[in-house]
């Protein structure tokens, strides 16, 4: 892997910073986020690795992982992060790039009846809708 100045401060890196309001350089890779994450077992890239990839400027790798969709925004990581990094905000920024710019949608209108049939509360449906769709 070749690391260059361009890859470190590419436009995507800046865009993620702008959407999330977070500076990934604050992270010193202690791994508290991963250790605290209740859904880390289902992730292909661990939360602290997401931040590491972003520090290295490897944005595409994290845009293509399932981690950003598994993250449940439970804020356990943010509450315990010794550096005060808003990792849920970074995850949201990554989702936002896919949803806003690349026409991505994980939740489609056709999914709705299935969910409704389960008796899922509105709160869950709206949350899912907000997280998975533009």
């Amino acid at each position: 892997m070749k690391i260059t100045t361009q890859s470190l401060c590419g436009t995507m890196v800046k865009e993620i910073a702008a959407i999330s309001g977070e500076n990934v350089a604050k992270c010193y890779q202690c791994g508290k986020c991963t250790a605290a994450c209740p859904v880390n077992m289902a992730m292909d890239i661990l939360p602290h690795q997401v931040l590491r990839f972003l520090q290295l400027g490897l944005v595409e790798a994290v845009l293509n992982c399932n981690t950003i969709w598994i993250c449940a925004s439970c804020f356990t990581c943010a509450g315990r992060c010794p550096r005060g990094v808003d990792l849920p905000g970074v995850m949201e920024a990554l989702r936002a790039i896919l949803l806003r710019k690349r026409g991505f949608s994980r939740f489609k209108a056709g999914d709705m009846p299935r969910v409704l049939n389960k008796g899922m509360p509105e709160q869950g449906i709206v949350s899912g809708f907000r997280k998975y769709t533009k």
């Binding site: 209740p38 859904v39 969709w69 449940a72 925004s73 949350s127």
Partner: peptide, 8 residues
């Protein structure tokens, strides 16, 4: 697990 139950 919050809204993950919608899909996962």
């Amino acid at each position: 697990g919050v809204y993950l139950s919608v899909q996962n």
